[in-house]
């Protein structure tokens, strides 16, 4: 078992490439529309759970209102596509910039606060954004939502088939993973984790804590915004009921279930928790009750999440020492 773990940790990069390679060829073997849809939605949730894992798992800042940025991104894209017939790329850019801008505003206020004060503030932000979405009817059509959002268009090419949308999502997910991967395996990643472990000591070591917190907060808001923009064109319909605090919590739960501070865990956690509710669909109205009970049991049985206690970098470093000493 240990050997397997070490082997896996050492070749994590190759396994990851293999995994995404498989995802890339999968559509050629998968005929079911339902399966394609599920996979696309899974990837969307993995992307958002990545964003929360970066923020909560690596930096240790907990928010329960991050879905607000998804909402901002989704509405930005929906309005630009529907009213101004923008192409998808500039839409994405606008969604990223706008959610990043609000992320910056919120972080400037929230990150000055400690622990729960900040968490509750993000909750308040989420509620306010949702109420604006409901009540600014001239722009958002209120509770009716915006429907008939057309499919993504890149350089005049319309991506209307399920398969092309699947690939679009895959590309977005890979870009997100590359971004987060680069950050956490760098000096910035070290700084971020140092802040999580001991903020005061990090400051004493010359780390500009506020700067890093802001950068990570804004980045994670941008990822949510991008996910929202994709979501709007994918579903072709959005309404404020999607961007609630509970939805935000669900994504957080995915990141925690997978294991905070472990990206592989996030992939597994978000996928399982996206598919699980689908699988217990036969429970009909009992579904949410069972889901709640499952969450409690999960937390009690595995408080660290599936892979929260596994640190691949540490396993690699350990293995390199053993090799040097000629042991095992």
């Amino acid at each position: 078992m240990k050997m397997v773990k070490v082997f896996f940790a050492k070749n994590l990069k190759w396994f990851t490439i293999l995994f995404f390679g498989l995802l890339a060829v999968l559509p050629f073997f998968m005929t079911s529309n339902y399966g394609m849809r599920m996979l696309t939605v899974c990837m969307l949730y993995v992307m958002m759970a990545f964003s929360l894992n970066l923020l909560t798992g690596f930096l240790g800042v907990m928010t329960i209102g991050h879905i607000a940025f998804m909402g901002i991104g989704a509405y930005t894209a929906a309005i630009l596509v529907k009213n101004y017939h923008w192409e998808t790329l500039p839409c994405y850019l606008a969604a990223i910039l706008l959610s990043g801008f609000f992320g910056l505003l919120l972080s400037l206020a929230a990150l000055k606060l400690q622990g729960y004060y900040m968490t509750i503030l993000t909750l308040g932000f989420c509620e306010i954004v949702r109420l604006v979405e409901i009540n600014w009817e001239s722009l958002t059509r209120g509770a009716l939502g915006i429907s008939g959002i057309s499919a993504p268009v890149f350089f005049g090419i319309r991506l209307s088939s399920r398969r092309s949308i699947y690939y679009l999502m895959l590309v977005l997910l890979i870009l997100t993973l590359l971004l987060i991967w680069s950050i956490i395996n760098s000096k910035a990643g070290n700084a971020i984790m140092a802040i999580r472990e001991d903020e005061l000591a990090a400051r004493a070591m010359g780390i500009h804590v506020f700067k890093y917190k802001t950068i990570v907060f804004v980045l994670s808001a941008m990822i949510m915004g991008l996910a929202g923009a994709f979501y709007a064109q994918y579903m072709t319909y959005i309404d404020p009921g999607v961007f609630t605090v509970s939805a935000s919590l669900n994504i957080l739960i995915m990141a925690i279930f997978g294991g905070l501070g472990n990206l592989l865990g996030t992939i597994i956690g978000a996928s399982v928790l996206t598919i699980l509710p689908e699988m217990i669909r036969f429970l009909a109205e009992y579904r949410n009750l069972i889901y709640g009970i499952l969450i409690i049991i999960l937390m009690l049985v595995k408080p660290d999440g599936l892979l929260g206690s596994v640190n691949f970098k540490y396993i690699r470093q350990q293995a390199s020492v053993q090799k040097e000493n000629g042991g095992e």
Binding site: A191, D198, I207
Partner: peptide, 19 residues
């Protein structure tokens, strides 16, 4: 006040952050 869930090596590397 070490960064407890990080290795000794990483703790030292973090010290070099600002340099």
């Amino acid at each position: 006040r070490l960064f407890s869930r990080m290795t000794a090596f990483d703790n030292v590397v973090i010290g070099m952050h600002a340099r």
